[in-house]
Write a protein that binds this DNA or RNA. Sequence first.
DNA 1: CTGTGTGCAAACTCTTTGCATAAGT
DNA 2: ACTTATGCAAAGAGTTTGCACACAG
Lengths: 136, 136
Amino acid sequence: MTDNNDELVDRLRDAGLRPTRQRKSLGNLLFSAGNRHVTAERLHEEAMNAGVAVSLATVYNTLHQFTSAGLLREVAVEGAKTYFDTNTSQHFHFYHEGEGKLVDIPTDMVLLENLPDAPEGTKITQVDVTVRVKKK
Amino acid sequence: MTDNNDELVDRLRDAGLRPTRQRKSLGNLLFSAGNRHVTAERLHEEAMNAGVAVSLATVYNTLHQFTSAGLLREVAVEGAKTYFDTNTSQHFHFYHEGEGKLVDIPTDMVLLENLPDAPEGTKITQVDVTVRVKKK
DNA sequence: CTGTGTGCAAACTCTTTGCATAAGT
DNA sequence: ACTTATGCAAAGAGTTTGCACACAG
């Protein structure tokens, strides 16, 4: 964890973001435990539990800055809630409707083919595949 | 249009929904012009423009009732906005990020394969494929 | 008549913004 | 010092809810 700090600081610097206390803390929560899918609120709670004082507004700001910097990917699944995914590569999700939980689907299994070209004058920015599931 | 009314009334009845003035009007706006993708707000405006007095709350209620009845499909694309799609069969979308516009992709072209089974104890309710595009 | 649907306004949830204060370099 | 980030509280957008009134069967 503490070992990751230098690496994290570099990532932030490279992204043009000053490595402030808050950004480092949030960065550690996000990136030190494999792929994660968090909402702003969830991350805010985690920070609090970890004894890091961060305001919710800052969590939002930080998540968006990380996203612009390419460190995170935004996933829109449902209603108002926005999820941020630490896995920025092309991959798909299961979404558990009951629990509001998002889980990776290993991409290499899935085949998405014959997508038509983007409409005239536009280009594809992202392809989202969400498989909604619920308890039977 | 007026010809569709009997058909629409039957659809509503079959769904266990009383064919009220509002539901018939909204139903006509939704189903008489091919496949549509609307937000509650958009539909509300249209109703107003068509001289039909409906409150926004009723539009929301109606859209949800239609969705439960299987007449519509809910599509979550971005942030707070929920789109309702009159095409309830399996198909995919282009989403224009700039304009917030949703467009069908004819399914028969696209191939989505090797989806893993739904996680233990769950079943798939819907598969959403959204190709985000933006102006170049 | 009887029960379901509607309209309104207020409440709610998630997210964003503005501005004074604090921290990074 | 100078600039960028943060915190707070308030505003905003979209959606939902509760309750009195209206309409369909």
